[in-house]
Design a protein around this nucleic acid. Structure first.
Lengths: 142, 142
DNA sequence: TATTGTTATACTCTATAACTATA
DNA sequence: TATAGTTATAGAGTATAACAATA
């Protein structure tokens, strides 16, 4: 049994820890969706919409990594609750633009307030670690 | 308009960046599930099982944050493919223990090999940043 | 011809409630 | 009585294929 073969590199260890961190967010996501009257997929859809800029159905399907026929149903659900509206695009009448209603934006903001809550484990880091974490992630993703 | 009110703290920025990082993993998860012949929920279920230690259905339901009636269906699917087996527990005959078959473990390993792949953005970090990231996450989660 | 979105279809996911077997 | 798991049921998610409208 070669123990060296099973030794993870630092970044592999980091990735595994991040996996745990995000998996632990699952119950929170399920709960907040229910709290605002949405299913998790509907929550993700509303999350991807832009309150300031109408989004074509097509773009939402791409953002959700799913088929456009699926988006039809998700948007039907959101529209039935008055959270989004379909609007025709002026320059291309094939396209339906998704507009977040004021009520939809209210739900969206309440949902985001929970989703964006920093997990306790990260909040308990020292100020130096918190800044270092941000800096490293900005170098990687920024 | 008070711009200070919208300024994120370092850890809030970090959390937002992590959210992006994980959302970007979605297509990969959907693809690897299809590649090994599973749906995403089935993949998560197989992921949570322990190849060395049989897991009660109940524990799997808790790990997946879902109802136990749902686990029945997921395990039915995995069992139909010969990836897991239900076994009775000796000390308590109400409990069904889930055993990963050799074939199930093969699928599981192939799936993990993809899931555990470190995203390119993190791989491109310098060695110092990679170690620092691991160290910080270990302090937070370890 | 190609693209956007919808519909028809089939299957899976999911929770609730009622049930069986066991403790 | 309480717990582990299943079944029945209903509704939502999902992709594929076929379609209409538009480009």
């Amino acid at each position: 049994m070669d123990s060296a073969a099973e030794t993870q590199t630092p970044i592999q260890e980091a990735w595994a820890l991040l996996g745990r961190l995000f998996w632990d967010m699952r119950p929170r996501m399920i709960r907040v969706a229910a709290d605002v009257g949405l299913t998790p997929p509907q929550l993700f859809a509303l999350r991807m919409l832009d309150p300031d800029e109408p989004v074509p159905m097509r773009a939402l399907a791409a953002a959700l990594s799913c088929d456009s026929s699926n988006v039809t149903g998700l948007v039907d659900g959101l529209e039935a609750q008055g959270l989004v509206e379909r609007r025709e695009a002026e320059h291309d009448r094939r396209i339906r633009l998704l507009v977040v209603t004021p009520r939809g934006n209210d739900v969206r903001e309440r949902m985001l307030a929970v989703v964006q809550q920093v997990p306790e484990a990260l909040q308990e880091l020292g100020a130096d670690d918190q800044r270092a974490l941000r800096d490293i992630l900005q170098r990687a993703l920024g």
